[in-house]
Amino acid sequence: MKKAKVFRPTAFAFPYLAVTLVFVIVPLILVTVYAFRGQDGSFTFENFKYVFTEAAYRNSLFKTVGIAALATLLCLLVAYPVAYVLASAPFNKMAVLALLFVIPMWMNFVLRIVALKSVFTAIGLKPSFLTGVLGLVYDFLPYMLLPIYTVLSNMDKSYIEASRDLGASDFSTFWKVTFPLSFPGIISGISMVFMPIFSAYAVTGLLADPGTTVIGRGIEILFGLREYGAGSALSFILLLLVFLVMFLSSLLSKRTNKTAKGGNRQ
């Protein structure tokens, strides 16, 4: 029998593959090459040594981890209750309400940060560590809110009913059922906020004091000084961090999936 010719236009992906190769893969290779390349063109760790011995860059790197962790935690503390309320009755019937929380996301973030800046000026808050962190929370809140809200509103409500029927209080139902089931949302929220803060130097640049900045600014300064080696070394460190965060979050979501499905806790 004649085999029907199957239509498989895989070649359609080739232009994009070429674009990805030239404009995504090659740049990453360049970052890696410049990071390990000395002035004379030989392989070296000098660039890494430089960014770790120069106090300004080393401190900025560690401070960024702290700022990102703090801002992510604050985002979570604000976003979780909001997402929880929005997903609960009677609020889950009001689609407009959830929309109100994400509309600002569609407005240019520099303009929103400038608006926040003028409010801080009006109430007499001077640029500081606090205003910088508040600005980051203001900017990234929707990115934490959306994944948690999605998970909570798609959650199978029968788990909660079962917990209630079996006599658990509201609190222990939340703590032992709802909260663990919402882990995937929390994890994806954290990964949408934590790493992007490393690049968000526009926010700290507009709102915080000069001492409070994220490492993205340090990288920008190094490239501005034509210190491509040191700048690439810092970029390479961020690249490793991105991989680490991705690895951890995939590990965590695998584990929570297991416990959610099998319930095989000790």
Partner: peptide, 29 residues
């Protein structure tokens, strides 16, 4: 090829934006 292509297409989505930006700049240089 699907898995490889899918992963490759997500690089810029998960990468820190400053690294993407510097990658473009280094490509220009």
């Amino acid at each position: 090829m699907r898995k490889t292509v899918d992963t490759a297409s997500q690089i810029t989505v998960v990468n820190a934006e400053i690294v993407t930006a510097m990658g473009f700049y280094l490509l220009f240089i």
